[in-house]
């Protein structure tokens, strides 16, 4: 069974239709890149999959392991294994990162009927993962993302991905605001999480990220739908020719 099936999805925000019949199938173990110009609807797709309020689905469906994802609250989706790494992770003053990670992890485990992590196990796990991502321990004591640099915020997203062990990771413009070293650390973190059971959808404007996270499939989005699908070589092709051809065609 496919992990994620987006079928003929139509989405409106207020009076404007953003997605006009988008379809996408993602199987376990696959890495899909979604590329496209600004305003093509890439981020809207990621938000609708994660359940962000403010979007009206006027047609089509999204199935996650055959279940209707659109019927689920955002937290139910998270517990089922959907993870969105935010383009702009929010700062939450007053909520210590460690407390947040633990509350979230245990909320997901509880929703799945699993036992909560014991304190030593949790701490051990956080330490391991944060070390591999070059996240200093004192960062975890601060408020969630408060005072973090762009690179630190993205690493914090990947840290959560590693802790929650989702089966579908959607990375929304992970490369935005990162310099080349920060990008490499983040990409290494993502690559370490690739597995035959886990799929990834990498949304990006630039081909550069795909040098580090090599996709199995590349989809080009323009004006609210997928206009071309190919292998990893499609990304390189786009780097040379740009998106203009698709914008005219769509």
């Amino acid at each position: 069974m496919a992990l994620l099936e987006v079928k003929d999805l139509q989405v409106r925000v207020e009076d404007r239709e953003i997605l006009h019949g988008l379809s996408l199938t993602v199987n376990p173990g696959e890495v899909h890149a979604i590329m496209g110009p600004n305003g093509s609807g890439k981020s809207t797709l990621s938000h609708v999959i994660a359940g962000k309020p403010g979007y009206e689905v006027t047609g089509g469906q999204i199935l996650f392991r055959g279940e209707d994802l659109l019927e689920m609250a955002p937290d139910e989706r998270a517990a089922k294994g959907v993870f969105l790494a935010f383009q702009y992770p929010v700062e939450i003053p007053g909520v210590a990162t460690m407390n947040f990670l633990r509350t979230a992890l245990n909320a997901q485990r509880k929703a799945r009927g699993e036992s909560e992590y014991s304190t030593p196990d949790f701490l051990k796990k956080v330490r391991e993962v944060s070390k591999s991502l070059n996240i200093p321990q004192d960062m975890l004591k601060r408020g969630v993302n408060v005072g973090f640099s762009g690179g630190e915020k993205k690493r914090n997203e990947i840290l959560q991905m590693a802790l929650f062990e989702p089966s579908l990771c959607i990375l929304d413009e992970m490369d935005s605001g990162l310099d080349i070293d920060a990008l490499r650390i983040a990409a290494d973190g993502v690559n370490a999480l690739r597995s035959p059971e886990r799929a990834m959808v990498v949304i990006t404007h630039y081909q550069r990220l795909l040098n580090y996270i090599v996709p199995d499939f590349v989809h080009v989005m323009a004006k609210g739908s997928v206009v071309k699908t190919g292998g990893k070589e499609l990304a390189l092709e786009l780097e040379g020719s740009g998106y203009a051809q698709f914008e005219h065609a769509a």
């Binding site: 962000k52 609250a73 955002p74 517990a79 993870f83 939450i92 947040f100 979230a104 909320a107 929650f164």
Partner: peptide
């Protein structure tokens, strides 16, 4: 709302 959604996307219920 943005903070609420972030937390919910991480598995916390609305009340939590």
């Amino acid at each position: 709302e943005a903070l609420l959604f972030y937390l919910r996307a991480r598995g916390l219920s609305e009340k939590e």
